[in-house]
Amino acid sequence: MNKKYVFLAGLLILLGIGLAVLPSREYPDEINPVQLLGEIKDQTRFLSTDEIAKRIIEKDPSYMYVDVRDPAEYNSFSLPGAVNVPLSQLLDSANIVLLNQKVKSVVFFSNGDISAEKAWLLCRRMGYKHQYVMQGGLNYWMETIMNPPVPLASAPGQDFDTYQFRKGASAYFGGGPAGTSSIVNAPQQNVLVKPKKNSSPAAGGC
């Protein structure tokens, strides 16, 4: 028998044993701190309250809202359809199944955005996909959606559109009646969910 084959086989077996005894990683998808810092730098994890309001109104099923506050606070008020995962119980196995979703996007929120961001950062470290934070938390939600400030008369038209939307949204979520504000003149009172642009018909071949 050729000696070098014996040598090679022995070497490979040794390496194989080495691989087998390597410590298994607790979270196989864990991303390293440098990558995580990169994600922290770009602010894409934040969803605005307007965007979230729109998605709730549209009943977008691909979003899940996770309230990381205590159960007592959750029971007294939360976003419609939100689930409660107190931050201290984030890593319970039942919650992990909920958060590590391949299909749904997870939006964390709390009173501010600090607790929510803590949950986000840990979940991202574990490599979970589609994780977001509601910018400003419920405090900001109250200030923008439930009780939107009236834009200045000199404000750009876009601000008024936003205001209109927020008024409508606040009515949807149980806030004040829409359209009672003095600056609003009648016509544009409904919140219109923009219909998708019709694509032009495909012109045929030849």
Partner: peptide, 19 residues
């Protein structure tokens, strides 16, 4: 402290009636 609720959310929502 950003994590302190600045409002009583439930009261705030309840207080204003639906249209």
């Amino acid at each position: 402290d950003a994590e302190i609720a600045r409002y009583n959310y439930a009261e705030m929502v309840k207080g204003i009636s639906k249209p």
